[in-house]
Design a protein around this nucleic acid. Structure first.
Length: 427
RNA sequence: GCAGAAGUACCCAAGUGGCUCAAGGGGCUCCCCUGCUAAGGGAGUAGUACCUGUGAAAGGUAGCGCGGGUUCAAAUCCCGCCUUCUGCGCCA
């Protein structure tokens, strides 16, 4: 949600931003918002004036009643009553106009970074940089599910029986590897100065509707029956929700947090659940990082954050690249965003394993997350990024560390988390 | 989960319909007096948001956990919810 003052003062800038995102159908929203805003202000003025009059008259009634001048009091009371209908009408219209304005403002996209490449959709995203050489071995890399089965690391058939499609049992060394990656990622972020946090895995509906749109909610969130609770789709939901409506102290910033949680997603629409594998599933685990900082610091945090993910993958010997989202592929709340993609030697291309976003003050304004300064309170900037999300990350891991004999090598950094084990062998 | 009690500022807390556009105390800030590991006096301190408006100002409205309602008027009365405390119950 952008600042209404920006829209008032520089509507052309807002329109230009909409054009850059190829959302020309949203251009009329600017004038709609301006009209609703001026109507809302007029209503507030009239309402405030009427309320001021009512407050004054009510006070007179009180004084008259004390002097037992009942008749005079009744006369004044009649005056107030005369205005009551008008005030009620104004209040009703104010609510209506405010809600409409909010709905329109929510659809107007955040101003994007001047560094954001202009493009229509994901096909125009821009590769910025590669890390480690993407290699293709001289033997064939099987589909990840086949690798996992050879290692006795997965049982999808049982998961289908107990839970349906989109679930899995990870077993043995592979399950241990999964936990090892998370533990390593956790310590990696703690060493970067982030505070580790385990958040609630369920959140109330008011938090859900604060952190996402209704469409996203419908497509992603599982509701707990008979309770006002939803399973989180990412720990970002509970981590950002933690600060909803809060005014932080300037001294607390930047808040640099890394959180672990399981994530639950319906994955309705899009490409849906994959039948063969663990690429897109209903349940996975994720180490996440979020930063809440002052506006002037968010650009540099953005750079640091995606680089942490790159550094983590490189330390595990997985080639990655940074793919900058173009204007048309950028979600409306985002100022700038990039994906970290891992190399798949089987597909001979990169695929998404993480996503880093700077939302500037758009999310903070929507959720009312501010901090106090000497001059008053201002909206903070919020950023989020995936540290690592196994099991999807395991696909890249297995493909890049697969040996010709079907076993999988464990990189040095993970061995302490695997009891010193250097390989997972075919069972 | 059941029952009872409570939620007012940085903290404690008064307040059952108009005398509270929220008393008092502590703390904090400033000033005075004193003069040196005391003590006393005075002033300020309900954040904040929105609107109108200015050179600076100033004014208005909302705000007593949150959301509704009753009323000319709500911290106060009514309804729903949230949170905390105490006791009982259950449980990793």
């Amino acid at each position: 949600m952008i600042d209404i003052a920006l829209l008032r003062n520089e509507p052309e800038l807002v329109r230009e931003n909409i054009r850059k995102k190829f959302q020309d159908h949203k251009l009329p929203l600017v004038d709609e918002a301006l009209a609703l805003d001026s109507r809302r202000r007029a209503l507030q003025q009239e309402g405030d004036t009427l309320r001021a009059a009512r407050n004054t008259l009510s006070k007179q009634i009180g004084a008259l009643m004390k002097e037992k001048k009942t008749e005079e009091a009744n006369a004044v009371r009649a005056q107030v009553t005369a205005n009551a209908d008008r005030l009620a009408a104004i209040e009703a219209e104010t609510n209506e106009v405010s809600e409409k304005l909010k709905a329109v403002m929510m659809r107007i996209p955040n101003i994007i970074s001047k560094d954001c490449p202009i493009g229509r959709d994901d096909s125009e995203n821009v590769e910025r940089k590669r890390f480690l050489e993407p290699k293709v071995p001289d033997f064939e890399i099987p589909y990840h599910l086949d690798i996992l089965e050879k290692l006795a690391g997965i049982d999808i058939d049982s998961a289908r029986r107990t839970s349906g499609q989109g679930f899995y049992y990870l077993t043995g060394d592979v399950a241990r590897l999964h936990s090892a990656v998370l533990a390593y990622a956790r310590d990696f972020m703690i060493n970067k100065g982030f505070t580790y946090c385990i958040p609630p895995f369920m959140i109330r509906s008011d938090v859900v509707s604060g952190v996402m749109s209704f469409e996203e909610m419908d497509g992603m969130m599982y509701k707990i029956e008979g309770e006002d609770l939803y399973l989180i789709g990412t720990s970002e939901h509970s981590m950002i929700g933690r600060f909803m409506g809060q005014t932080l102290d300037e001294k607390q910033l930047p808040l640099t947090l890394t959180s672990y949680s399981p994530c639950f997603r319906k994955e309705k629409g899009a490409h849906g659940i994959e039948e063969r594998g663990i690429y897109r599933i209903h349940q996975f685990e994720k180490q996440e990082m979020i930063v809440i900082c002052k506006p002037e610091e968010s650009e540099s945090w953005y750079e640091k954050m995606w680089n942490y993910t790159v550094e983590l993958f490189v330390s595990m010997g997985i080639p990655v690249r940074q793919l900058e989202c173009c204007s048309g592929d950028l979600a409306d709340l985002k100022y700038r965003s990039c994906d970290v993609e891992a190399w798949s030697p089987r597909q001979k291309k990169y695929f998404e394993v993480g996503s880093c976003s700077n939302l500037t003050d758009a999310q903070a304004r929507r959720l009312n997350i501010r901090y106090k300064t000497e001059k008053g309170s201002v909206y903070a900037h919020t950023l989020n990024n995936t540290v690592v999300a196994p099991p999807r990350m395991l696909i890249a891991f297995l493909e890049n560390h697969l040996l010709a004999d079907g076993s999988v090598e464990i990189p040095e950094v993970l061995r302490p988390y695997m009891g010193g084990q250097s390989k997972i062998v075919v069972k």
